[in-house]
Nucleic acid binder design. Structure first.
Length: 423
DNA sequence: TCTGGGGTCCTAGGACCC
DNA sequence: TCTGGGGTCCTAGGACCC
């Protein structure tokens, strides 16, 4: 049986989430900012129409934003994650197999449904249901491969006449749409590859689809060869139903202000370490490799630059915050240099194990902290409960370096105190 | 003054082994 | 003139994604 994939993608997801609880902003252009209120990472359709570009630094366009009355929001991931899970659970009701691909996108397996309901009707029904139940509008692209489903979704967004649902099962329609898009719109083709393809005379999606897979492989990569095959209707990428086990955990932030004091940087590192350790325990994993980095801002080239990374292998895997704090503090002390204005720091954990115990060396004593598991469990439980927050002294209290979030919306859906009130 | 964060996969090249 | 061959493992860096 021919495979059928649908890609469902939320329109302007972060901006739509912010608007959901602000009916007064229904027709108003809004943007959502990255951490630190640094860059624009989402725009409502009104903001797009005004020509606001994705990814530009806020300070460069602040004047334009004001001039057009564009409303800004700091990113509020608690809100977006909650609305995302509502959308995803609706999709899961509609198809036996759903791959949650990102916070605002999912692939569905529609193989075999065609005799029961037309694919187009299915897409329209799912779209209407998500609209009605969550208030989030989505686009649906349907095709025999994931890459073509992405393309179909792109078409659904670009051409309003489609009603945001496109069935791209027909090879003729595939080729017509491919001819209309630049290669850089194809899933898996980034900036670099697009440039290289252009130099070789491949400009449209159709030209890429018609390229010889073998020579694409030798000149580019196996990844792009797979893309070419997928564009020709040969499915190479399957639905990934199990969330793959994480291979690494990173916690890093830019600071709201440049940091010059070792103690402040040390506190930031401690905070990221605790957060990374929490994530590690959520994954039910233990890690053995710990890495710390600090850096100045590359955007201020006339200032002295310094960036350093250092990692260390622990004697045995751990997920105990105290042991990780020991390790990151030591690493930090080795890479710290005075006299720089630091912009960013981070902690990375890798080399994961399922249990604390490696193959034990008979002659080595296990020097792990006592009662580690139970202490960490209590800490996580308190912090998850929302009733209080316990943390390690090395993180410092109310640090001066923390992120800027000047335009944060309330936690409408995840905190009782901030529920929207209806009069 | 001000430029996000968190991931994955692939490849090339070096170290090391027999 | 002429200095093996084949394999594994690890790491760094590049490219991509949202």
């Amino acid at each position: 049986m021919e495979k059928v994939f649908a890609l469902v993608d939320c329109n302007n997801f972060y901006a739509s989430c912010e608007k959901l609880f602000r009916p007064d902003l229904k027709q108003v252009p809004i943007v959502v900012l990255s951490n630190n209120d640094g860059c624009i990472i989402a725009r409502s359709k009104e903001a797009k129409a005004l020509g606001v570009k994705m990814g530009v630094p806020m300070y460069q366009v602040q004047g334009d934003l004001q001039k057009h009355g564009i409303v800004c929001f700091s990113s509020n991931y608690a809100l977006y994650a909650d609305l995302s899970s509502r959308v995803m659970s609706i999709l899961e009701e509609e198809a036996p197999q759903v791959e949650i691909y990102s916070i605002d996108e999912a692939f569905m397996d529609l193989t075999g449904i065609a005799p029961l309901e037309s694919l187009l009707a299915f897409g329209q029904r799912v779209k209407a249901k998500v609209d009605k139940w969550t208030g989030i509008s989505v686009g649906v692209g349907i095709a025999p491969t994931k890459t073509l489903a992405k393309l179909a979704n792109h078409g659904a967004k670009k051409y309003p006449a489609t009603g945001s649902v496109v069935d791209l099962m027909d090879p003729e329609r595939q080729r017509r749409l491919l001819a209309l898009v630049d290669v850089d719109q194809i899933w898996g083709v980034g900036r670099r590859t697009a440039k290289k393809l252009h130099e070789r005379g491949i400009h449209t999606g159709l030209q890429l689809a018609d390229a010889d897979p073998k020579s694409i492989r030798s000149e580019f990569s196996v990844v792009l060869e797979r893309t070419v095959r997928e564009l020709n209707g040969v499915s190479c990428l399957n639905l990934e139903l199990m969330r793959p086990v994480k291979q690494q955990i990173i916690c890093s932030r830019s600071f709201g202000y440049k940091v010059t004091e070792a103690q402040q940087l040390r506190e930031a590192i401690a905070k990221y370490t605790s957060r990374a350790a929490e994530k590690l325990r959520e994954e039910q994993r233990f890690c053995r490799l710990v890495c710390v980095f600090i850096r100045t801002s590359p955007y201020i080239p006339n200032e002295p630059q310094y960036a350093q990374t250092l990692s260390t292998e622990l004697p045995f895997p751990t997920n105990d915050t105290r042991e990780l704090l020991d390790a990151t503090e030591k690493l930090f002390n080795r890479i710290w240099r005075a006299g720089f204005r630091y912009a960013k720091a981070g902690v990375m954990l890798t080399d994961f194990y399922e249990s604390r115990n490696l193959q034990q060396d008979l002659f080595r004593e296990d020097k792990g902290k006592r009662n580690s598991a139970s202490l960490m469990q209590v800490v996580d439980k308190i912090n998850l409960s929302g009733l209080g927050y316990v943390y390690f002294a090395s993180q410092g209290v109310s640090p001066q370096w923390s992120m800027k979030r000047e335009f944060l919306s309330p936690a409408y859906t995840t905190r009782w105190q901030e529920l929207p009130v209806v009069f």
